[in-house]
Nucleic acid binder design. Structure first.
Lengths: 195, 195
DNA sequence: CCGGCTGGTTCGCCATGCCGAACACATGGC
DNA sequence: GCCATGTGTTCGGCATGGCGAACCAGCCGG
């Protein structure tokens, strides 16, 4: 493998560790303490001067609670295509069983699946996610107004919505005890989270 | 990190490199030649005695033309349950807003997101999906018994479960008006659907 | 002022990852 | 038979990853 590829890999690892560490709100010293390694190791790794062993990097990923690949693999370059699927109910052989296809797709994007609980109060404005981020939402309980800040929609249990996560968007519970399942897709290597 | 975790990681890497190398029809000597490393390095790595550097392993993955993660991380395949009461919320700046990460991943797999509604009756047995299929379920309403046919679990609203979809599995509503959100992952190019 | 804690960087030391060489074995051609 | 080429394993040597220590800076309390 070419030396410049190794150079790029080291730089990516350095940037990814730093980003994930800061996303988790940890200092170099605290991360090192939690992982059980020397803080000088973390420091040198984040400087891009290191070719760490797999075990060291695995330990860091585990402590940060993220997939190992997120620290290592470079973000995909070039245009990314997600096919929009028609919302066609899948016929089933029995009437007590009905499946509705909401979304289908295939990409190398990072995917995070959450349950988000919220109570009535001020609308929650979320900062835009990295470019290319998309959110898919299925309401579990309660009435919830959510979506792009300039045009949110009101959803009820069982409703599905998808919208771009890279523009300002909002979540607001209109009833108590509201929650929804959130599938968040964002480019690999970038931080996630509903925020 | 515990030593046994390192031990398991080394064993996994060793087995994965060997399997992928053989799948590609290469000898240790030929793989080493193509990667540009010593064949003794490959040999020792496949013996499970090595803690390779990231660059070495990255070079091997690149030469084999596979995602790096495949050499390092095994996809979780065993059934997993997170009940609504056991979720660990991600701290947010405001107390009316909690998000729980249930699953995260990245692959080139096809992904289908459904809402599945069902009523009490005979348990619905689903045929195994293509090898590598995984199902993620979040219960929206009702009590539902689902999962691998030999060991299904009973879930309630807000509960999350994941299990392999390439073995016989079942869905059964225990109360009326039950539904759940289903995220189904299966290898690209293969048919999907809850069936 | 001091001491204790935090933060991060740099340095020298030691164990180990990766190297090439040696070795044993197998196969095919002459 | 010999020779050339291939296979995989083991070994000793060297460069480097990870270590702890030293250093510097900042903050807080006595």
């Amino acid at each position: 493998m070419a030396e410049q590829d190794h150079h790029a890999l080291r730089a990516h690892i350095a940037a990814a560790v730093r980003a994930e560490r800061q996303q988790a709100g940890l200092s170099i010293s605290e991360l090192a303490r939690r992982v059980g390694i020397a803080k000088s190791t973390v420091s040198q790794l984040e400087s891009g001067q290191a070719n760490p062993s797999v075990e060291t990097l695995w330990s860091i990923a585990s402590t940060l609670g993220i997939p190992f690949a997120r620290l290592v693999e470079a973000p995909p370059r070039g245009p990314r295509i997600i096919r929009a699927a028609d919302r066609t109910p899948v016929p089933s052989a029995e009437s007590d069983y009905l499946a509705t296809l909401l979304h289908t797709g295939r990409s190398s994007a990072q995917r995070d699946l959450y349950v988000v609980s919220l109570e009535p109060g001020e609308p929650r404005s979320a900062a835009p996610h990295p470019p290319g981020s998309v959110e898919h939402v299925v309401i579990g309980s309660g009435r919830i107004r959510l979506g792009p800040e300039d045009a949110p929609f009101i959803l009820e249990p069982g409703d599905y919505a998808t919208f771009a996560g890279d523009v300002p968007h909002t979540y607001e519970a209109l009833t108590a005890g509201a929650w929804f399942a959130l599938l968040m897709e964002h480019p690999a290597g970038t931080p996630g989270g509903p925020r």
